[in-house]
Design a binder for these strands. Structure first.
Length: 570
RNA sequence: GGGCGGGUGGCCUAGUCUGGAUAUGGCAGCAGCCUCCUAAGCUGCAGGUCGGGGGUUCGAAUCCCUCCCCGCUCGCCA
């Protein structure tokens, strides 16, 4: 248990004992009021009925039963509440010691059992990744980092859709068209370059029966499991995927594994799923195509029919996805999927089908709303689109301009490095800070915000800590921190103490937007302390340096958990 | 039409699961602060029917009902 947890537990048990003595049986749930008001509090209204006394009197009597001790600094009753201030010296000592000793491990939870497989991104490899879908890798990667910080064993995975008309069409385009047939691409990266081929082939297929036939034949061969065509498509997809991987790497997203959809055709597992489903009592047939009737799974109306073969007997995306999930369950204990909100029905059907297949487990899904533009939904086809590459490039460039104007003293390489950290951080932070279900409209001025509630704000606080620490050299790391009694110091310690719990909750509740919220709060407390309390050449220099270093680790670890670099100067 | 998700000052947002004291911050606006550890900062001011209505409760942004608005979705596509 972290330091703060001990305090809470201590106070809770004292309260429970006190209430029991007064005749109350039940649960005691503490609250965290505004820090100005109290550290911890218990509203006493809930006990009024059972104890037949008014809340202020209960609070009064209960507070009289509890006296300050090594954990409790102060206890008092106020307006029906019983308030606590913890023993600040002890809290400071425990929290600061914890941070200084555990350093990059500060905030990390104890190892938890079970393997977690987190699938994210999985965007179709038919074009560069755009901001509309960029929430997926950023939420997925941040959640993976957060869960690891919580102590989970996590691996991340991208499901590559290398099956279907779209990728066959693209493959056809690459072997039948040349550079002359397509408009020049703005970027030489393959994922951008290939879009022209895809669009040109699409047009040709519409206007030429011969081309359409070529592609249809190719698609049939693919679906029949022709290894040659599958391999050819795979090469095309890999070209596109390399571009996507590069974009992801640009925002610090790296996946542990890429699983190709075609695998489940080649190894026969999709076929096996078909046979097993056909044998189930839910299977029905319409014009030769098989489906599951999911009426009794709470899927109503027209959605109750969940097709798993075409009338020609070939498998569908959903069939392969089932095979994939069965495969994932063999490799992990817990499955997490990050999905666009358009996947909800499909996932409900998939979960039902998994039950029919005899799986007791189903994946846990986290859905996000697409990022749209002020003019509407993003679409590569319509040209209303902002690519992740463009956003990142712009963010890094803007950051570079800022660094140049603020820090002309730095050398070029350093300025570029800091600009990179800031640009990437700003992009990640701005997407992560909003809860996933909320619809988000992309605005350049917000995405490129370097002030206020932004990554650079948190990074700057970290750089400030580093700057102080750099100037001082060695100091007494076991200095007596009980001298840190200034309100700014106490506030900072209090927020520092929440860090382990914030990480835990962000992971357990799958609400990673708690991380930026906390990061901003922590950075803000550090900045206020910085402005109000001198550290260097002050009377409590060593104690304050300990606090600064503890804050430095918390800021750094919070940033790293968000996949954002913690530059030492900026 | 059905299902799911969102609606919090001009704009963005936390809090909603687990009801509790004056609703969290940011942006934009206004007024201040760099002879002192980096002003990407700090301080102050101004700005709110928590979509509307009803209910439950000592107490509702939070729970229940209802209505409104926005998004997604309802393929033998992937």
């Amino acid at each position: 248990m972290d330091a703060l947890g001990h305090f809470e537990e201590h106070i809770r048990s004292k309260l429970a004992a006190g209430l029991a003595a007064m005749g109350f049986v039940g649960e005691v749930v503490l609250e965290r009021p505004d820090h100005e008001m109290a550290d911890l509090a218990l509203p006493c209204f809930q006990f009024a009925k059972q104890l037949r006394k008014s809340p202020p009197i209960i609070a009064q009597e209960l507070s009289a039963r509890i006296s300050p001790d090594d954990h409790i600094g102060k206890v008092w009753a106020d307006k029906g509440y019983i308030n606590f201030r913890v023993n600040e010296s002890l809290l400071s000592e425990l929290v600061i010691k914890d941070a200084l000793q555990r350093r990059e491990e500060f905030g990390k939870g104890d190892p938890r059992p079970g393997r977690v497989l987190l699938e994210h991104t999985s965007v179709n490899p038919t074009g560069p990744i755009h901001v509309g879908r960029a929430r997926n890798p950023l939420i997925g990667d941040t959640l993976a980092r957060c869960l690891r910080m919580c102590g989970h064993d996590v691996s991340t995975e991208y499901y590559v859709n290398d099956v279907g008309k779209q990728v066959v069409l693209l493959t056809w385009a690459l072997s039948n068209l040349t550079e002359k047939d397509v408009p020049p691409s703005e970027r030489q990266k393959d994922d951008h370059r290939l879009v022209g081929y895809y669009q040109a082939a699409n047009k040709m297929m519409e206007s030429s029966a011969e081309v359409a036939n070529d592609i249809a034949v190719m698609t049939q061969r693919f679906e029949a499991g022709d290894p040659e065509v599958i391999a050819q498509v795979r090469r095309t997809v890999d070209l596109m995927l390399d571009g996507i991987k590069e974009s992801l790497g640009g925002v610090n997203v790296f996946l542990d594994r890429y699983t190709y959809e075609s695998q489940f055709i080649l190894d026969g597992s999709a076929r096996e799923i078909v046979e097993r489903l056909k044998a189930s009592s839910y299977a029905e047939k319409d014009d030769g195509a098989y489906y599951l009737n999911l009426e009794e799974f709470g899927v109503h109306g027209r959605d109750t029919r969940f097709f798993f073969t075409r009338k020609d007997g070939t498998t569908l995306y959903t069939t392969r996805d089932l095979a994939y999930h069965m495969d994932k369950f063999r490799r992990a204990d817990e499955l997490l999927n990050i999905l666009g909100e358009d996947q909800k029905l499909g996932q409900k059907q998939l979960a039902s089908a998994l039950k029919i297949l005899g799986s007791e487990r189903s994946p846990e899904c986290i859905y996000y709303s697409f990022v749209s533009l002020p003019e509407g939904r993003m679409s590569t086809r319509k040209g209303v689109v902002v690519y992740l590459d463009d956003l990142l490039e712009e963010a890094v460039e803007r950051a570079y301009q800022e660094v140049c104007s603020r820090r002309p003293d730095l050398d070029e390489e350093k300025k570029r490095g800091i600009a990179q950290d800031i640009g990437v951080g700003a992009v990640r932070y701005n997407i992560i800070r909003v809860q996933a279900e909320k619809q988000l409209i992309f605005k350049w001025e917000e995405a490129l915000n370097f002030e206020g509630n932004s990554a650079p704000f948190v990074q700057y606080a970290h750089a400030r800590c580093c700057s102080i620490l750099r100037k001082t050299g060695d100091f007494n790391k076991s200095a007596d921190v009980s001298v840190l009694t200034d309100p700014y110091e106490r506030k900072l310690v209090w927020i520092l103490a929440q860090f382990p719990e914030v990480v835990r909750q962000a992971g357990d509740k799958r609400r990673i937007n708690m991380l930026p919220t906390y990061g901003h709060e922590l950075a803000s407390a550090l900045n206020q302390f910085y402005g109000a309390v001198p550290v260097l050449r002050s009377e409590h220099q060593d104690a304050r340096l300990c606090l600064v270093e503890a804050a430095r680790w918390a800021l750094r670890n919070a940033l790293v958990t968000m996949g954002i670099a913690a530059p030492e100067e900026m």
